[in-house]
């Protein structure tokens, strides 16, 4: 019952997200041999695959397709670089890295709210705890606050455990109309509303320096919620 007789030929459209490991929809159609279906390649930094999923939702919700595929993939380790790749052209804004950008917010947050690295360390400890419960997690071992504080500094005040590990990976979801979902999997999951929010559009030169509640804005703007 859980694997009905259906396959790639039933997928009517796809959204594929990758920041630096492929371009165009062909990065998906070639390995899967998807035949002539429309595939949209999405790039939106760390929200890339989530945004692929979001746009796939819209297509199904709009009634344009019955079955679509949303997929995100990245092969970061092919770059041979430390941290996230990404080219930087010009002198304005030069010298920024992903951890460095978030560290600016952490420094100011610490200053403004009187907390320190110990508080931040609890997030990494909690994340690793959750990872230890998940057999598919990137890291599945518990860590202590002391380990977090003693780890090498990446972009002060963010140490190794405060930053995302970089690796290769992929995730996929098949989306269909709710009415036919049970046909493929009786234990299906529904998406109530996909949320996304952009920044205030002013960048690091602007007055807000990523202290704005990005995720909160996104959830509030989710259609259907």
């Amino acid at each position: 019952m859980r694997t009905p007789a259906w396959g790639p030929q039933d997928i009517q459209a796809a959204w594929v997200g990758t920041t630096s490991s492929g371009t165009t929809g062909q990065s998906l159609s070639r390995p899967l041999k998807l035949q002539y279906i429309p595939i949209t390649r999405v790039e939106n930094a760390c929200a890339t695959a989530q945004d692929a999923l979001r746009n796939a939702c819209f297509a199904v919700a709009a009634g344009l397709y019955d079955i679509v595929l949303a997929l995100g993939f990245e092969k970061l380790k092919d770059s041979g670089l430390s941290g996230l790749p990404g080219s930087q052209v010009g002198v304005i804004g030069a010298g920024s890295t992903a951890p460095g950008g978030f560290a600016l917010a952490a420094t100011r947050y610490f200053h403004q709210f009187g907390v320190g690295r110990e508080t931040l360390a609890k997030i990494a400890v909690k994340n690793h705890h959750n990872g230890a419960l998940n057999p598919k997690a990137h890291f599945q071992t518990e860590i202590t606050v002391e380990q977090v504080l003693k780890a090498p500094m990446i972009a002060d005040p963010l140490g190794l455990y405060d930053c995302c590990p970089t690796t290769d990976g992929a995730a996929a979801a098949i989306l269909c109309r709710k009415e036919i979902a049970a046909k493929f999997n009786p234990d299906y999951v529904t998406i109530k509303g996909p949320g996304a929010g952009g920044g205030p559009g002013d960048g690091p030169h602007g007055p807000r320096v990523r202290l704005h509640p990005l995720s909160g804005n996104g959830a509030r703007r989710a259609p259907g919620l």
């Binding site: 460095g100 560290a103 600016l104 420094t107 200053h111 990446i154 972009a155 963010l158």
Partner: peptide
């Protein structure tokens, strides 16, 4: 200085 970071990842 509003905020800053000492970035060890950036090439320098």
């Amino acid at each position: 200085l509003f905020t800053f970071t000492r970035d060890y990842l950036n090439a320098s």
